[in-house]
Computed example of a mutant assay.
Amino acid sequence: MRRRNTLWGLVFTAPAIIGVLWFTGYPVVASLYYSFTSYTMVSPPKWLGLANYVDLLTDQVWWSSLWNTLYILLWSVPLGIAVALGLALLLNLKVRGSGVYRTVFYLPTIVPAVASAVLWTYIFDPQYGLLNDALARVGITGPGWLADPGWAKPALIVMSAWGVGNLMVIMLAGLQDVPATLQEQASTDGAGLLSRFRHVTLPYLSPHLLFALVTGLIGGFQFFTPVFVATGGTGNPAGSTLVSGLYLYQNAFQYFKVGYASAIAWVLFAIVAAITVATFRLVGRRVYYGGR
Rank of each mutant, 00 (worst) to 15 (best):
R198T: 14
E184W: 09
A147S: 14
T181Q: 14
V164C: 00
V169Y: 04
S187H: 11
G142Y: 11
G144D: 05
G150P: 04
D148F: 11
Q176W: 06
L194K: 06
Y204R: 02
G165E: 01
Y204K: 05
L182F: 13
P179E: 01
A180R: 13
H199P: 01
T188M: 15
V200S: 02
L172P: 00
P154D: 11
V158K: 01
V178G: 04
A155T: 04
A186H: 08
Q183W: 11
D148M: 03
Q176H: 04
T188F: 12
R196V: 04
A173Q: 08
M171R: 00
L172A: 10
F197K: 03
I140W: 14
T181V: 14
G144T: 13
L193N: 06
T188I: 14
V178S: 00
M159A: 05
G190I: 09
L167F: 08
M168H: 08
M168W: 13
A152T: 05
G192H: 07
L175V: 01
L202F: 12
L167D: 07
F197D: 01
A155Y: 05
L182K: 03
A161S: 15
P149R: 11
G165S: 02
G192M: 07
G150T: 11
P154F: 08
E184K: 05
A173Y: 13
N166H: 12
H199N: 08
M171H: 03
T181M: 10
L156P: 05
D148G: 07
T188D: 07
S187M: 14
K153Y: 07
H208Q: 13
L202A: 09
M168Q: 12
P179M: 13
P154L: 12
V164D: 00
P203E: 06
G144N: 04
G150F: 10
G165P: 12
G190E: 09
Q185F: 10
